[in-house]
């Protein structure tokens, strides 16, 4: 089954700028792929369309069996709960502990606190930060902060995991570690799509790679 399907998708911003034009691809459930291209090629826009932070101007975006065009504003929160996202600048909240940062999606989804606590610990354990749960994320290194962001993205066990330049601020060694984490989640069935311009890292991973140029999909292969 397709996890993500783009059918002739176009995104035109106000003022007539075309961020995406005629994008067609299908990501099967359980697949892991990279999305690459120069900055401004449309990588972030493509991820935003999946997250419904933006709406497609043309064509159809499908996540699971849901056509996003027919999803009303009211249903966006439910949609986002099925998708985990990792950001380059990780979007952590510095007014609360690592634990509470990771617990936020579960609180929003209405989990029982003890159940949520178990899941938060499991997620922190997976990214190797279980010992840091009581700390404020501001006290962590940028690599650790990124891993907290990953723990928050996967704590809800999303079917789809998106990452926007997840290694943008990390040195090669840390980047490798983060990629291994994504591979682990992919191995247990999560569909993973990673936007990155780190060509050498992508080549080493030997995964399917979608290449965007000027808003068009110009290559799709291994």
């Amino acid at each position: 089954m397709a996890a993500i399907r783009f059918s002739n998708v176009g995104k035109r911003y106000e003022g007539g700028f075309d961020a995406l034009t005629g994008v067609d691809f299908t990501l099967e459930s359980g697949e892991m792929a990279f999305l690459t291209g120069h900055s401004g090629a449309g990588k972030s826009t493509l991820l935003k369309l999946i997250m419904l932070m933006e709406r497609a101007s043309r064509g159809q975006v499908q996540v699971g069996d849901q056509d996003l065009n027919s999803l009303s504003r009211r249903n966006i929160p439910q949609h986002r709960r099925r998708i985990g996202v990792v950001f380059q600048n990780h979007h952590l909240l510095f007014d609360r502990t690592v634990f509470d940062n990771v617990a936020l999606p579960l609180q929003i989804a209405g989990y029982d606190p003890s159940d949520a606590a178990r899941r938060v610990r499991a997620a922190l354990d997976k990214v190797g930060l279980l010992m840091r749960e009581k700390q404020n994320p501001i006290a962590l290194s940028s690599g650790e902060q990124q891993r907290v962001g990953i723990a928050r993205a996967i704590v809800n066990k999303p079917a789809v995991l998106l990452a926007d330049e997840p290694t943008g601020n990390l040195d090669p060694e840390l980047s490798e570690g983060v990629m291994r984490l994504f591979e682990q989640f992919n191995r247990i069935g999560t569909t993973v799509l990673i936007a990155s311009h780190d060509i050498s890292l992508i080549e080493r991973m030997r995964r399917r790679t979608l290449v965007l140029r000027g808003g068009r999909l110009v290559a799709d292969g291994y």
């Binding site: 929160p77 439910q78 949609h79 986002r80 979007h91 936020l104 929003i108």
Partner: peptide, 12 residues
């Protein structure tokens, strides 16, 4: 910031 993050992870 809190509102933005909450909306990103699916807050109504």
């Amino acid at each position: 910031d809190e509102i933005l993050v909450a909306k990103l992870v699916g807050a109504t």
